[in-house]
Computed example of a mutant assay.
Amino acid sequence: MSSDQARIMIWSTPRSLSTAFTRSMSARGDTKIFWEPYLNCYSYGRDRTLHWADDIPGVINDKYTFNYVNDMMGKFQSDSKVLFAKCMIEGITGNFDVVAPGYKHTFLIRHPLKMYRSFEKLSEDLVPIDYKTTFKNIYQELEKFYDHVINELGQSAPPIIDADDLLAQPKTVLSKYCELIGIPFTPKMLKWDCVENFSVLDWECTDVGAITRPEHTEGLTMSKALQSTGFGDGSKKKTNYSSEDYSDDVKECAEHALPVYERLYDLRIKI
């Protein structure tokens, strides 16, 4: 590994602005992106344990094993100063040891009411997953891996970004994030071009799965992140969660997740 090549992963729950964050990293111009490599193994690879997409033509690819993605992510990229992997925590649930060595781990969190409401809409429109069961303990898994990074991998307390903070003050949050992970901040991270689909982004690991297929990019799944050109002007305020209209299922899931979210929130990058 080259001493001047930063290797970074960011972990999150689903529906937590992680694609927008990845677009920000990609906009730097010096960064190689690995798109959800472990989630691809979990959902679409030879040893997948999630089978919701088994009957969807063209989305399964047996080459996606943990060895395959770790070999890809471990190679030196001569044209990139930063290697950046955006990962969903469910891709390594109960299997933390599969994660590639040599990467600095960071985290992105979102209030569980927003996360579960977004996933409820996704499950109704596209992905037939019972989020109430599959993702009941997803925040708990995120916290477990946070502790694993410190206690087993020996890294210092990983930086945590809260999605609301990112939308409210993107420049401040991104500047502090870059400082903590040891790469220079650039204003390029605040703006990027609108695109129609993933094929023009030149990201690794986007050749598998239903979510990145062109026929789905106009739906709820990825359209906002693909068509966006930045995080906004910083005028967005945090939601008054008590006033929102959420379903009983979303409220139940969020109540279960809230204590973990609040613990992680207390450790976040402060603005």
Results as ranks from 00 to 15, higher is better:
6 A>M: 07
6 A>S: 14
7 R>W: 09
11 W>E: 07
19 T>F: 02
21 F>T: 13
29 G>N: 02
31 T>D: 08
36 E>K: 02
40 N>G: 07
52 W>G: 00
53 A>T: 09
54 D>H: 03
57 P>F: 04
57 P>R: 07
58 G>I: 13
60 I>K: 12
61 N>D: 13
61 N>R: 13
64 Y>V: 04
64 Y>S: 05
65 T>F: 08
68 Y>T: 13
72 M>V: 15
82 V>M: 01
84 F>M: 06
86 K>A: 02
88 M>W: 02
88 M>F: 04
94 G>E: 11
102 G>S: 03
105 H>S: 05
110 R>W: 03
112 P>E: 06
116 Y>P: 00
117 R>N: 08
119 F>E: 05
128 P>F: 10
130 D>H: 11
135 F>W: 15
136 K>Y: 11
140 Q>V: 14
142 L>T: 10
145 F>M: 04
151 N>V: 15
157 A>K: 15
158 P>C: 13
165 D>Q: 07
165 D>Y: 05
165 D>N: 13
171 K>T: 14
175 S>T: 14
178 C>S: 02
182 G>D: 05
186 T>P: 00
188 K>C: 02
200 V>Q: 12
200 V>G: 11
206 T>R: 08
210 A>Y: 10
213 R>M: 11
213 R>F: 08
214 P>Q: 08
215 E>K: 15
219 G>F: 05
225 A>D: 00
231 F>I: 12
232 G>R: 03
238 K>S: 12
241 Y>V: 09
241 Y>W: 15
257 A>V: 05
260 V>N: 04
260 V>I: 15
264 L>W: 08
270 K>A: 02
271 I>W: 08
271 I>N: 10
